[in-house]
């Protein structure tokens, strides 16, 4: 590139006016189609959550949280996320380190297997833990002898949540770490730094924004998981009901304001996650560039 050309000076608009774009009416029509589609299918549902939650006013909204079962559900959801997220974080860092910094046989298979939970229906994810730990499950003799209740109890909910959010952190970090290469780490090692020190001072600063976003997304998904948790929870009100399950109960009881009020917590969490992601993207475009799909 020896020449000043339009891309260098960043004039997409000027060039867009020339040969590499559609005519103005076509552009406007396409924008209208895309905006209408996204508004109808994505924005409207979220708006509906809040509209329904506040349909009977602020008082009714806050009353929904005074319920002991609702509070128990929130407590359980926070507990589950507090276990599942760190667990997946540690796994994600370990897996992405192995994948991104080393060449080994079977790497493609390893990555595919990490991705596997994304292609499994949440309901099937719940089912497999019942097959393992249910009363007729393969590991039932073991858990019974240890007097452990896994399914229809908190451990099952945690396991199912870990399963469905399993690939999130690794998926985000692998491309980021790969992009970075190993030059920086090698340089640090030649200067005599230890492995952990290198990770903390060289690798981590480069991936911290991607890591933060993946943790937030993992958290939002863990708190919001419905299908898998629904299968293994056993729906014991006040004991094994997470927030999404509680939403379902309230909704099926036609207690719409309460259902949407509780749901608005999760919707708010999702929106906050997206806002933080967008802010990170705008400020640190490179650090999140690889977040193409989940």
């Amino acid at each position: 590139m020896s020449e000043i050309n339009a891309t260098d000076i960043g004039l997409p608009t000027l060039r867009a006016a020339s040969v590499v774009t559609e005519r103005r009416p076509v552009r406007i029509a396409l924008i209208a189609v895309a905006v209408a589609f996204l508004l109808l299918f994505l924005v409207l549902p979220v708006a509906a959550v809040f509209q329904q939650a506040f349909a009977k006013g602020l008082g009714a909204y806050f009353e929904s949280f005074a319920d002991a079962d609702a509070l128990a559900a929130i407590e359980l959801t926070v507990l589950v996320a507090a276990i599942a997220v760190p667990f997946n974080l540690v796994f994600g860092i370990a897996a992405s380190w192995a994948v991104a910094k080393f060449e080994f046989t079977g790497k493609a298979l390893f990555v595919t297997l990490i991705d596997l939970p994304f292609s499994v229906s949440p309901v099937v994810a719940g089912l497999i833990y019942i097959l393992l730990f249910g009363s007729q499950g393969y590991l039932a003799p073991l858990t019974q002898s240890l007097d452990l209740q896994i399914v229809f109890a908190v451990p099952g909910i945690v396991l199912a949540t870990i399963f469905v959010t399993f690939p999130l952190v690794a998926r985000q970090l692998i491309p980021l770490m790969q992009e970075q290469g190993i030059g920086d780490e090698e340089a640090a090692l030649t200067l005599g730094a230890s492995g952990f020190h290198v990770f903390r001072t060289v690798t981590l600063p480069n991936i911290k924004w991607g890591l933060l976003y993946s943790v937030l997304l993992c958290n939002a998904r863990a708190m919001g998981e419905f299908g898998a948790v629904s299968v293994v929870s056993g729906h014991i009100r006040g004991l094994t009901d997470t927030v999404p399950l509680h939403v379902e109960i309230l909704y099926n009881e036609y207690n719409f304001v309460a259902a949407f009020a509780v749901a608005s917590l999760l919707a708010g969490l999702a929106l906050v996650t997206l806002v933080i992601k967008s802010l990170l993207e705008w400020r640190y475009a490179d650090g999140l560039a690889a977040s193409a799909r989940h």
């Binding site: 996204l38 994505l42 924005v43 549902p45 979220v46 509906a48 959550v49 329904q52 949440p122 997304l217 939002a220 998904r221 708190m223 919001g224 998981e225 419905f226 299908g227 999404p244 399950l245 939403v247 379902e248 909704y251 259902a259 949407f260 749901a263 999760l266 919707a267 969490l269 999702a270 929106l271 996650t273 997206l274 992601k277 989940h294």
Partner: peptide, 16 residues
């Protein structure tokens, strides 16, 4: 907003 369905719990989307 495109990422919303990734982050929004399915049950919440469902009732909405």
């Amino acid at each position: 907003i495109v990422d919303l369905p990734f982050a929004l719990p399915t049950a919440v989307a469902g009732i909405a």
